[in-house]
Structures are given as C-alpha cells and as structure tokens.
Amino acid sequence: MKGIRLRPEKTGLRAALFDLEADIMEVVWTEQWSSFTVADVQRALERSRQIAYTTVMTTVGRLHDKGLLSRSRDGKRYLYRPRMSRGEFAESMVRELLGSLSGLGHEQALSLLVEQVAESDADELRLLEELIRKRKRELGG
C-alpha cells in the first residue's frame, strides 16, 4: 500500500488512515460491498452527518491511490472495489510496522511486542504463547 504512515497518537484504523478515509473503509467493510460508487458511500455517511459529494469523491480517490480500493469505469462514473478485507488491512499494517522495527534488531523488536501484549492482559500473552507453539510445530520443532 502506498502513502500510508502510522500515526501512533491514534488507534484502530485511524492510526493508519485519516479520519474520513477510516470512516469510508468502515462503511465499505461493514456494508460488505463487493463494488460501490461514490454516491453509495455518500448516502451511507449521510446517515450520521452531512458531507459533500466532492469531499467523498476526493477521499475515495485517495483510498484508490493508496491501494485500498480498485476501480473501473462504468459509463461516466467509477465502480470501486475493496482490495482487501478489514483483517487483511490490519495484517498488512502490523507487517509494515514490524518491518520498520527490524532496524532495532530482532531481539529488541520481539521484546517490545511481548511487552505490549503482556500489558494488554494475561489472556493475550497466553494466546501469543500458543501461536508460538503452533508455529514451532508447523516448522517441525
């Protein structure tokens, strides 16, 4: 994905996307649209707020430029499609973050990950342990 930078002061989708971009992707994923138009997004967003068509059009275009949406011509308009699910997006963000930490050295990056998980709660730490055991079994170790 192009042009996505993590914003550590934000959480969830907003850590990787601007607020309106995150709102639009939430709508796309929640509605489970396989294809949609800018007008579809505007109608969905207008359930909770007033928003100009041109604002939605510009932001959907940015999401396309960032690689989250694909588009094809349908007469005078574009039909957009999500290029990934919410889970795939989250996974790609985590991979990007972990890749950016590799300059720290693997031990320090892993230590930070374990520390963060441990701060969440004990169940998350147990889940991490299980995932490690599972991966070791898959690798034959």
Rank of each mutant, 00 (worst) to 15 (best):
Arg62Asn: 09
Leu20Met: 07
Val28Pro: 10
Ile51Val: 15
Lys136Trp: 07
Lys66Val: 08
Ser34Lys: 10
Asp123Leu: 12
Leu13Arg: 11
Glu21Ala: 07
Arg77Leu: 11
Arg62Trp: 01
Asp65Gly: 13
Gly140Ile: 03
Ser92Ala: 15
Ala109Cys: 06
Ala52Arg: 11
Arg14Asn: 12
Leu127Gly: 05
Ala39Gln: 09
Glu138Pro: 04
Glu26Asn: 08
Glu31Phe: 00
Ser70Ala: 13
Phe89Asn: 00
Leu45Tyr: 02
Val114Asn: 00
Leu113Asn: 02
Gln32Phe: 00
Glu96Thr: 15
Ala122Ile: 14
Arg86Gly: 03
Ala44Lys: 11
Gly103Cys: 07
Trp33Arg: 09
Ala109Thr: 02
Leu125Glu: 09
Ala109Gln: 02
Gly141Pro: 07
Glu124Ser: 13
Arg7Pro: 00
Ser85Phe: 09
Glu107Ser: 15
Gly75Thr: 02
Glu107Thr: 15
Leu98Ser: 13
Leu68Ala: 08
Arg73Asp: 10
Asp123Gly: 10
Gly103Trp: 04
Glu31Leu: 03
Leu112Thr: 01
Leu112Tyr: 08
Lys2Gln: 10
Ser100Val: 05
Phe89Lys: 06
Phe36Gln: 01
Ile24Cys: 06
Val117Lys: 00
Arg77Cys: 05
Glu138Leu: 15
Leu127Asp: 12
Ala52Thr: 03
Leu6Lys: 15
Leu112Pro: 00
Lys66Asn: 06
